[in-house]
């Protein structure tokens, strides 16, 4: 009986992984490639800021919640969201700017 319960538990985990793996790629924030850097340059965001923004996005935000896809919110929604979260994530103003800059550049390339 207990073995049956354990098997059910293991099966549930496998199902969850299967279900979520469909979206794995889209949920991983895009890396800072040459293409993203070019898009950043058009928006006056330098490479260092993009890299710092991504590093902070993938490390600070997951301390409280899973990462949303950059396309999940509009370019006008992101600044308000980042402002709300910046205090909780202990981001300094330059770090907050870098995270927002990375998200907006990645967002512009996600369509």
């Amino acid at each position: 009986m207990k073995l049956k319960r354990l098997t059910t538990f293991a099966a549930a985990i496998v199902c969850l992984v299967d279900l979520s793996s469909c979206g794995t790629t889209s949920f991983t924030p895009p890396p800072v490639t040459a293409e993203l850097a070019r898009a950043g340059a058009h928006q006056h965001v330098d490479l260092a800021a993009l890299r710092e923004g991504r590093t902070l996005f993938v490390s600070r935000c997951i301390e409280c919640h899973t990462l949303p896809a950059v396309s999940q919110h509009s370019a006008t929604e992101w600044p308000r969201l980042i402002d709300e979260m910046a205090g909780r994530a202990n981001l300094k103003s330059t770090e907050r700017d870098a995270v927002l800059a990375y998200i907006l550049v990645a967002h512009s390339q996600s369509h």
Partner: peptide, 8 residues
């Protein structure tokens, strides 16, 4: 490992 909204 994080898979989108799932944490293992």
């Amino acid at each position: 490992k994080n898979f989108g909204p799932l944490i293992l």
